[in-house]
């Protein structure tokens, strides 16, 4: 099961909780679960509708996408106002030369 479905369910709850806790921060972005998408999310969704003409996003689909964008704001809220100072660099795959394997060492040495 993904993941994304579960995330979307939880995100909506998390967003609601966070919006209660930090109304000032999220005033513009706070999702309104029963009242339709926020103005910011709707603006973003309409921007997608306008800039992705091949997708032919209908108005009703655009409104639903706005609801999903509100859920995405919960991600931002979850990371906001938390100190990142002591977090390490993320693990990314990029290396400067194709000749250098990313994980050349045997598994036993990784433990």
């Amino acid at each position: 099961m993904t993941t994304r479905k579960r995330f979307l369910e939880h995100a909506a709850i998390a967003a609601a909780v966070v919006s209660t806790l930090a109304k000032a921060d999220l005033a513009a972005a706070a999702p309104a679960a029963k009242r339709g998408p926020s103005a910011v999310a709707l603006a973003l969704a309409r921007w997608l509708q306008r800039t992705l003409p091949r997708a032919r996003l209908s108005n009703s689909l655009t409104e639903k996408i706005a609801g999903d964008i509100d859920d995405g704001f919960a991600v931002n809220a979850a990371f906001r106002n938390k100190s990142n100072a002591h977090l390490p660099e993320p693990d990314f795959l990029f290396v400067a030369s194709e000749d250098i394997p990313i994980s050349p060492q045997p598994r036993s040495e990784l433990r």
Binding site: R4, H10, A11, G72, A74
Partner: peptide, 9 residues
């Protein structure tokens, strides 16, 4: 949930 959501999205 936020971590998995951000990474998968």
């Amino acid at each position: 949930n936020a971590m998995i959501g951000a990474v998968i999205s």
